[in-house]
Design a protein around this nucleic acid. Sequence first.
RNA 1: GGAGGGUUGGCUGAGUGGUUGAAAGCGGCGGUCUUGAAAACCGCAGUAGGGCUUCGCUCUACCGGGGGUUCGAAUCCCUCACCCUCCGCCA
Length: 426
Amino acid sequence: MLDLRFIRENPESVRRAIRAKQLPDAIATLDKLLLVDEEHRLLRQDLEEKQAKRNASSKEIGDRKRNGEQADELIREMGSLSAAVKRLEEKSRVLEAQVDELQLEIPNLPHESVPYGESEHDNVVVHERGEAPSLDFEPKPHWELAVERGWIDLEAGVKIAGAGFPVFRGVGARLVRALERYFLDRARERGYEEIIPPLLVNAASARATGQLPDKEGQMYRLEEGLYLIPTSEVSLANLHRGEILDESLLPLRYVAFTPCFRREAGSHGKEVRGINRVHQFDKVEVVQLTHPELSYETLEQMTEEAEELLGELGLRYRRLLMCTGDMGFTQAKKYDLEVWSVGQGRWLEVSSVSNITEFQAQRLQTRFRPGGAGGRGRPEMVHTLNGSALALPRTLAAILEQYQRADGSVVVPEVLRPYVGTELLE
RNA sequence: GGAGGGUUGGCUGAGUGGUUGAAAGCGGCGGUCUUGAAAACCGCAGUAGGGCUUCGCUCUACCGGGGGUUCGAAUCCCUCACCCUCCGCCA
């Protein structure tokens, strides 16, 4: 959510941002917001004047009564004034609610370093790293390789839950767990605090991180009104909702391994085969709350950290800088990391690292006080960043495909051997 | 599920319906003292929004959310949410 005063004072910047993000509907929302906001402020002026009068009169009444004087006439006058105040208060509440709702539909501004673009085709490849091995046999896609070996059982998943709920078994499950532990350990070494958060969140939390109202259709919703998290970013970012933090606590770094649940309605076809796109998957997610001045620097660091993981696994990967049109509602700047899938001959997104600037903090009301708690500085919004480090299924798919041998066995990447306990899976 | 108690500023914690935006303590900031620091003492300091003759003045709202009673509500009533205690139930 953008600061209302900022929107009011910089409507042209906001309009440009909306166009750049390819969200034409939001132009009308912005115009309406400016209109309703203006109406609301005029009404407030009238209201506050009447409130001031009311306060003065009731104070006068109190004084007179204390002195044993008559106040009946004044009390009679107050009747109509109070009624007017009540009317205006009610109207003000309605307008304010409208402003809030409209404000929620205004996207974050892209950073100036983000290239303008209309779609994913305009994303910029920042760099490509690593080498894929040249195999002297036809590599299989993971859904053949792992299914033949019984490491991934898609049919069992269909029976138990439905399509998009893969079952990992035996060696497959062990590899998943090795990756989780490896990613978590690396994050801990870098100073992230490990968190085991709730997998269900209430509407207030989903709203605060921007899942609601924009992405309601992405989440599974329970009868109780709770939502299954689509990413642990939601839980982690909400750790400090409504708090004013001591400046010395920043940056706060959190890492969580959790399952993620996504409805992925309407996505079918070749690209979603195997475990490329599923309704439930595991992900190690990092979230940082930083000082506003450091967030872009932090974005680079976090992206490099995720890249290191891919490098250490020996995978070929590339970094994309997302263009304005492909970036999403809440982000100011975002990098995607894609890993090369040897068996499928295509790139797979395994990480997405974003700087949300203060957009999320506005909704979260997560602030810090410059100069320490109780100090003089006015509270400022923290900046929030999040990134996958990494998403499990596609990373696993890439590993299986790249490290496969002609006989169908798979070599374990060196960094995972301590966790798997063997060098070769067969 | 049943009964009761609670929710106040960054934190802890007072608060008879009318100078209570709110005591006190902690923590914070500034100063005195000190070679420096600590201690002690003095002073400053909530959040959000609006207006103006805008480096300041002023108004309004905010004591969990919403509603009500009243000329006037942190204080009384209703309702919702959350927390705590006891009982029951399940592990």
